[in-house]
Amino acid sequence: MLQPVVFFLIVTTLFPLSLSPQLSQLRDIAPGIVWVGALLSSLLALENLFRADMDDGTLEQWVVSGQPLSVQVLSRTLAHWTVSGLPLVAASPLVGASLAVPAAAFGMMALLLALGTLCLSGIGAAGAALTLGSRRASVLLSLLVLPLAMPILIFGARGVDLAILGESTRGPLLLLSALTVLTLSLTPLAAAAAVRISLE
């Protein structure tokens, strides 16, 4: 459960080591590092989203329970987010401090990361459900999810960038919120369809 956070911390440590430890330079690239790190570590956690439920037959129970499958998938996704996405949000000030992000931007960075990881969990749930029946799911999953996650990265990184510069983050924040609402309302339907297919 802790693995994604540890991965997040390690990946963000790689950048100062490989680029430059100069604080002014780090601050310039901090939004990119934080977001790429967060995306990759959530991706790492996604593989287990439905795997255990698939193996022990929980998914079949969902399907035969008579409750709408998409709602069950959504609640599973949100529960998964609290153990995979939320720890990243909690760890973000730590990473921010190490990358010379001013303390005033921590709050906005955490908020944007919370929205972004939620959104990614939504897309990832569909991706994880689609790869349930396939071999070598982890590489495939990143191939499916990452292109769809580009807008999250764009809005999120831009928002953190603006927050570091001390400017208004209203635009990216609203766009990212809209994207999150849209994703969480539509992707459970796709994920539910994919779960049904994998059980056929």
Partner: peptide, 13 residues
């Protein structure tokens, strides 16, 4: 990339 993902998913089953 989207095309590649689609084809990869198809060939993985």
């Amino acid at each position: 990339f989207l095309y590649l993902g689609y084809m990869a998913l198809r060939s993985a089953h």
